[in-house]
Design a protein around this nucleic acid. Structure first.
Lengths: 225, 225
DNA sequence: TCATTCCATATTGTTGACAATTCTGCAATC
DNA sequence: GATTGCAGAATTGTCAACAATATGGAATGA
């Protein structure tokens, strides 16, 4: 999947991120350095950088002297992520409603249009990238670097959570609800925009199967209880 | 300052963090790898890890092929950090007010007591650690891992901002306002607690000299204007 | 005197090899 | 039959040497 020349750290991170979101890398799988170094045709040092980044994003867990494993977010962690998203995204929306330039409005609408196309043509990779990308674009447009960085973290973790706990085959976070939110923001309708965003997040979370004690069949505690 | 044996990555990060907060490392200073490797008696590889962590915390800026430099947060970035803190810490306080165990209440009060002692005895290092630590402890007690991680970032950046833009000699973020906040939380008084926290943050921010074009004497633009 | 080019130096980036640790399979023992 | 102990293999952690790049200053010319 990579060229003869080595991939950059960002490319490696992106590739792993997508593989996790597409469920091709399951939680608990070990990401062995040498193996990855061979796949991406780079030295282990660069793989280590990528793994450190992925750890910071919460996608992999690094255990000293053991290695890096794809994270298995608990139900509590999943709920926590959505809890924080409710607060942060509300903050983003409120900020955006204070006034948005025509150029920014255009960008948002164009993004939603791209989502529509990806959904119609059913390109999984694009759908995953774009549906998270919408929330990121919102944060970026809000003009707070820190909020943007925080949303980056939240989206990365949300992708993993969706990959693990997704119930339906259909991807949530579709373009229709996004479009409504954009229009409310452009129309400076704070109340409606925050309400729609809250509803949207609720909708996304509700499509997950966040029940306790899920597939812990191999867990010691479950066996002992 | 380190033992004959090499320091761990965490120790290095902690040391640099404190040096920045204590203004012993000024913004713009380059952190040369070899130099630091000698100081901490470790190889450059470990220094690189520490620098990567510090970059993630926003304390240093890494320019490819140039090196790592102590960050110089702009006024906009400073305001941004406090803007996000207002939202996040309000969220923390609201969560805490929903109910707090006696053990947690005791921990919070003990922390404030420690701050008092450090302030009386005027131990700069402890004051810096503890005053940020209070807000961290609050986030930790709130029981959201993500909120805690976010506050970690915010506190690290706030320390740098305070070090750069602090006006008075006295450290802000004193124990008195902290104590009031704790008591309001323990008393389940949401309105008062959020109000006090907002006021506290306002107070901290107001003691900074967030004026544009500060100490750019060595900056090219200032010299040419 | 000032701007430009070039080279020596210093610093970061990368690689491969070696050390330390952990995992796995097998045999011995209770 | 289940458990423990032990060697071999596999994997991560660390390091030092080498390559690539940027910096600073001297030499050159206008």
């Amino acid at each position: 999947m990579t060229d003869q020349n080595g991939a950059s750290v960002e490319q490696i991170v992106e590739k792993v991120w997508l593989s996790i979101a597409e469920r091709r890398l399951r939680p608990g799988v070990q990401l062995k350095e040498e193996q990855m170094a061979a796949i991406f045709n780079v030295s282990r040092a660069r793989i280590r950088q990528a793994l450190a980044t992925l750890q910071r994003d919460g996608l992999v867990m690094i255990i000293p002297n053991r290695g890096a494993f794809v994270s298995k977010p608990s139900v509590d962690e999943a709920r926590d992520v959505f809890f924080v998203r409710r607060t942060v995204e509300r903050c983003v929306v409120e900020r955006l409603c204070k006034g948005i330039s025509k150029a920014d409005a255009k960008r948002l609408r164009e993004h939603v249009a791209k989502e529509r196309i990806a959904n119609m043509e059913d390109i999984t990779t694009d759908i995953i990238k774009l549906s998270g990308g919408f929330h990121l674009l919102l944060a970026e447009t809000a003009g707070s670097d820190f909020l943007f960085a925080t949303m980056r973290d939240l989206i990365a973790r949300s992708s993993l959570i969706t990959a693990v706990y997704r119930n339906t085959n259909r991807f949530n976070c579709g373009p229709d609800e996004h479009a409504e939110i954009v229009e409310s923001i452009v129309g400076n309708n704070v109340d409606k925009a925050t309400r729609l965003m809250a509803h949207h997040l609720e909708h996304v979370e509700s499509e997950l199967d966040l029940t306790e004690l899920r597939d812990l069949s191999h867990d010691l505690r479950a066996a002992l209880a």
